[in-house]
């Protein structure tokens, strides 16, 4: 991971990124009754192009299923895309599930989608590291992941 600084400045330069010791693993997930997955697809593709290994959950997953995938795949980053407004019930369930398997501490949990400002503190208290709303640039998200992906 020591070569991170070089890579950031030359992220377009494929030979640099290909030489990473370790790929950042991400689970991009859609949870609950929310069928809007364009954002999740765009993020998956952008993460892939950034050199991350991306596992996409598919649509309509239950919190348990997200937790199962996150634990088994041992991901560094769990991105939860929610546009349905059910974040205040679904996200805590996922966080509790991660806790159950001892994965909460060292998984970087991100939430993307439509989250009203007044709901943000609650999610952050739950342990969500960052919330990316509409208008967030892809670069910003990738940068955040690179800087905050847990060291293991």
């Amino acid at each position: 991971m020591s070569s991170d600084q070089d890579e950031d400045s030359q992220s377009q330069h494929h030979t640099q990124t290909a030489e990473r010791d370790r790929s950042i693993r991400c689970l991009v997930s859609k949870v609950g009754l929310d069928g809007h997955d364009r954002g999740a697809h765009v993020i998956s593709r952008a993460f892939r192009d950034a050199g991350f290994e991306v596992i996409y959950s598919g649509l309509h997953k239950a919190p348990d299923e997200i937790v199962q995938a996150a634990v088994q795949e041992d991901v560094d980053v769990l991105g939860i895309s929610i546009l349905s407004g059910a974040h205040d019930t679904l996200v805590p369930k996922i966080m509790d599930g991660l806790e159950e398997y001892g994965a909460r501490e060292d998984t970087l949990v991100l939430v993307g989608g439509v989250i009203p400002d007044e709901d943000r503190p609650e999610l952050e208290d739950e342990g969500v590291a960052a919330i990316f709303g509409p208008g967030t640039s892809i670069e910003e998200t990738i940068e955040f992941v690179r800087e905050n992906a847990p060291e293991r």
Binding site: T17, A18, F47, R48, A50, G51, E53, Y56, S57, G58
Partner: peptide, 13 residues
């Protein structure tokens, strides 16, 4: 990807 090393792992779906 042979270029970025990135991957989308889709079998789980």
């Amino acid at each position: 990807s042979p270029f970025t090393g990135g991957a989308v792992l889709g079998d789980r779906i």
